[in-house]
Simulated assay, not measured.
Amino acid sequence: MKRFKTVHYTIHSNKIKDARGIRFAVIADLHGMEFGPDNRKLLETIHRYRPDGILIAGDMIVRNDSASLKTASSLLRSLAQQYPVYYALGNHEYKLYRTDPQENCMAARYQEYEKELKTAGIHILHNESCSLQVGKTSLTVYGLEVPLIYYKKPFSPQLKREEIRALIGEPSSDSLNILLAHSPKYGDTYFDWGADLILSGHYHGGIVRLGRHNGLLSPQLHPFPKFCCGDFHRKDQHMLVSAGAGEHTIPVRIHNPRELLMVDLKPNA
């Protein structure tokens, strides 16, 4: 049976109003993978931690593998029976979402997949947001979908704050703003837009530092100077990178990429 590890982060914010705090389980880049029959092991672990919600940062499927849609749908619908689930697309979902289903059978199957998830109550955020209240704390979850050119390898164009505003509008001024953005490459721009917490996947954990004072090397083999796997923060803002469980081959790995993230949001001391 495939294995994964659970990684914990605790983030403090003055926007969290209850001492108990808020817990989210974060999943990305499963690409149709299963941990035990029907993902039983993954589900058991999530249930044990009793999160307040599930955040999906994209690439739950493989765009040319119909079996991956069935596996992902089964897992997400099971989660939706007990938790609110918020889902932002990765590049694999977005490719199918933007393809004419009359010209591509996988795109047609993807439309059915989204319909199944929405019927189950899952919030699929196509450059949209959902507000939720946990205790005394107000949160807004945004799902960012950028055009595929921003996933171009090895180089992609610069993403500007104004482009994010055009896609998802202005951030909320009176809640903690959680941005689900599949690619972590544009972290500074996400923060400039107004995100308090960014959750990403895509790079599958494969980033390495070249020397003490150099930048970082991403799987796409170009300098990536601002953050690595784990917790990148600027002032009181946070970005969590490498929520992933994919099996893609990448040049370097600094840890096992099969991860379930548990993020605890706590008030400032």
Score class of each variant (00 low, 15 high):
Glu170Pro: 04
Asp52Lys: 02
His92Ala: 10
Ser74His: 05
Cys105Met: 08
Gly58Ala: 01
Ser173Cys: 01
Glu93Gly: 15
Glu116Met: 06
Arg40Thr: 04
Arg109Gln: 07
Pro171Ile: 09
Ser138Leu: 03
Pro84Cys: 14
Lys160Phe: 15
Glu103Asp: 08
Arg48Val: 00
Lys160Trp: 12
Pro84Val: 14
Val134Ala: 02
Tyr97Glu: 13
Leu167Pro: 04
Lys160Glu: 02
Ala72His: 00
Lys115Gly: 07
Lys153Val: 11
Tyr87Pro: 09
Leu89Tyr: 05
His126Tyr: 15
Met60Pro: 02
Tyr151Val: 12
Arg48Ile: 10
Met60Val: 12
Glu44Cys: 04
Leu55Ser: 06
Ser68Trp: 06
Cys105His: 07
Gln111Phe: 15
Thr119Pro: 07
Gly169His: 07
His47Arg: 14
Asn127Gly: 13
Gly58Asp: 00
Gln158Cys: 14
Ile122Cys: 10
Glu116Phe: 05
Ile61His: 02
Ala107Met: 14
Arg77His: 08
Leu117Ile: 11
Ile54Val: 12
Ile46Lys: 14
His31Ala: 09
Gly169Lys: 04
Leu125Arg: 02
Leu89Ser: 05
Ser66Val: 13
Glu145Asn: 12
Leu79Lys: 11
Tyr110Trp: 06
His92Trp: 04
Arg98Gln: 11
Arg98Pro: 07
Leu89Cys: 14
Thr45Ser: 09
Pro37Leu: 10
Arg98His: 10
Ile46Tyr: 08
Leu144Ile: 09
Arg98Glu: 02
Glu44Pro: 00
Leu76Phe: 03
Arg48Thr: 09
Asn104Met: 12
Glu114Lys: 13
Glu163Arg: 02
Leu159Gly: 06
Gly135Met: 12
Cys105Phe: 03
Lys70Ala: 12
Lys115Phe: 10
Asn64Arg: 12
Leu42Asp: 05
Glu116His: 10
Asp100Gly: 06
Gln158Glu: 11
Asp65His: 12
Leu148Cys: 11
Leu42Ser: 15
Tyr142Met: 01
Asn91Glu: 08
Gly143Gln: 00
Ser131Tyr: 05
Pro147Gln: 01
Ser66Ala: 14
Pro51Val: 00
Tyr49Ala: 11
Thr71Leu: 00
His31Glu: 06
Pro37Thr: 07
Ala67Gly: 13
Ala120Pro: 07
Ser66Leu: 15
Ala57Thr: 10
Glu145Gly: 04
Ile122Tyr: 03
Leu43Asp: 09
Ile46Ser: 13
Leu125Lys: 03
Tyr83Trp: 08
Ser156Lys: 15
Ala88Val: 04
Thr137Gln: 07
Phe155Met: 12
Lys41Asn: 14
Asp65Val: 09
Asn104Val: 01
Leu125Phe: 07
Gln111Glu: 07
Ala120Ser: 06
Val62Ala: 11
Ala88Ile: 03
Gly32Cys: 03
Thr119Leu: 03
Arg50Gln: 08
Pro154Glu: 05
Arg109Asp: 05
Gly90His: 08
Arg48Pro: 00
His123Val: 03
Asn91Ile: 05
Ile122His: 01
Ala107Glu: 01
Glu145Asp: 15
Thr71Met: 08
Gly53Arg: 06
Leu117Tyr: 06
Leu125Ser: 05
Arg161Lys: 06
Lys153Leu: 06
Leu75Ser: 01
Tyr97Pro: 00
Leu89Phe: 15
Leu75Trp: 01
Arg109Ala: 12
Lys70Ile: 13
Lys95Ser: 08
Ile164Arg: 15
Pro154Leu: 15
Asp59Gln: 04
Phe155His: 15
Tyr97Asp: 14
